[in-house]
Nucleic acid binder design. Sequence first.
DNA 1: GCCCAGGTGGGTA
DNA 2: TACCCACATGGG
Length: 221
Amino acid sequence: MKNLLLTVYERLFDDYGPQKWWPADSRFEVMVGAILTQNTSWTNVEKSVLSLKAAGVMSPVGIRLTQQAELAQLVYSSGYYNMKARKLKAFTKWLGEKFADDIEAMTRQEVSVLRPELLSVYGIGEETADDILLYALDIPIFVIDTYTKRLTTRLGLAPREGRYCDYQAKFMNSLPQDVSLFNEYHALIVTHSHNICTKREPQCEGCSLLEVCPTGKSRTK
DNA sequence: GCCCAGGTGGGTA
DNA sequence: TACCCACATGGG
């Protein structure tokens, strides 16, 4: 049987082309973006990223030296600003204590050790951890988000159990373990989701799974 | 005005 | 384990 998930990937890639994720100037900026984009549209995150850069604090040291209240103002536009300021503080504290801010050193850690370490940091859950591993550290791990779950469910490919790890296993067991493929696939799912009806359930009449929403009701172009 | 966005942590049963 | 809720701005 032809690998269905690979077929879906090829179809999305044909439709949208390379997505060039993650848009950022450094690995550290990817990590910051991964925290800021939690349940938040990227356009809001971009403003916060610019604010952090303008304030000269887009670095582990910069964030550690910034008061949490001031940090909250800098990331205001991405919402949950008090929570996210706290998360950025927790993450940079960990980065300093564990790796002396040496991000290259992170890549030399076994994923089996590094991922649980990331998950132990306040504010870093499974998706954010995997964003960091894949998009900042080029480690082949598949990122599962709301869009991915929704699409696989609509395609009838949802795993029997609906935990994060079940969805992740579904993708990782069906695809070659390739950083570029995982990078592109997740990005394509997000882009595609921005182009189809994203209403939770049911999807709008006639909104085909792999077609752009015919009603034009897609929300986040 | 309403709905949703590239989630996570804490509380309760 | 499985829900429920708080966290919050900004665009369609």
